[in-house]
Simulated scan of single mutants.
Amino acid sequence: MSNPLIAALDDAVVEARSRDIPLGARLRFVADRVRDLSPVYADAVDVFVGRLESVDAGTSAPQVGDVMPSFMLPDQDGRMVTLDGLLRNGPAVLVFHRGHWCPYCRLNMAGVAEIEARVAPRALVAISPERQQYTRMMRSDAGAGFPFLSDVGSGYALSLNLAIWVDDAMAQLIAGAGKDIPEYQGTKGWIMPIPAVFVVGTDSRIIARHVDPDYRRRMELADILSVLERLDSKAA
Rank of each mutant, 00 (worst) to 15 (best):
R51T: 15
M170R: 10
Y156L: 06
R131Y: 06
D56M: 11
E114Q: 14
V64A: 04
L87Y: 11
H210S: 13
A7F: 00
S154V: 08
E15Y: 07
V49M: 09
D77N: 10
A12W: 07
R230H: 12
A8L: 02
S226K: 04
M170T: 12
E130Q: 15
V49D: 10
T202D: 09
T59A: 08
P22A: 04
E220D: 08
D214W: 02
R19H: 06
P62H: 01
A222P: 00
L86Y: 11
I115M: 01
D214A: 01
R98W: 09
V81L: 01
L107D: 12
T187Q: 14
G178C: 07
A126Y: 05
A126E: 05
A7L: 10
V200S: 04
P74K: 13
E183N: 06
D77L: 09
R136H: 11
A235H: 02
I194T: 03
F148M: 12
G176P: 13
R51G: 14
L86S: 07
A25N: 12
P213G: 04
H100Q: 11
D212M: 06
I127L: 13
R33I: 13
C105H: 02
Q133D: 15
G58K: 02
R17Y: 02
L9D: 03
V112E: 04
D10A: 14
P193R: 03
L160S: 05
T202P: 03
G65S: 03
V93L: 01
L173V: 10
R118C: 03
D43M: 12
V112N: 02
Y134W: 15
S60P: 02
F48Q: 13
P193M: 05
S154P: 09
E130L: 09
P195S: 13
S128Q: 01
A44Q: 12
A7T: 14
A25Y: 08
I194F: 07
T59W: 08
L86F: 13
T82Q: 04
D75V: 11
S128F: 00
S70F: 10
E220G: 08
R98S: 09
V93W: 01
A12R: 01
I191W: 08
L228G: 01
G99Q: 06
L160C: 05
C102T: 06
S18M: 07
M80F: 12
P74G: 10
L9G: 01
A31L: 07
P213S: 04
G111T: 12
Y41T: 11
S2L: 13
S159Q: 05
A236L: 14
G153M: 09
D32M: 11
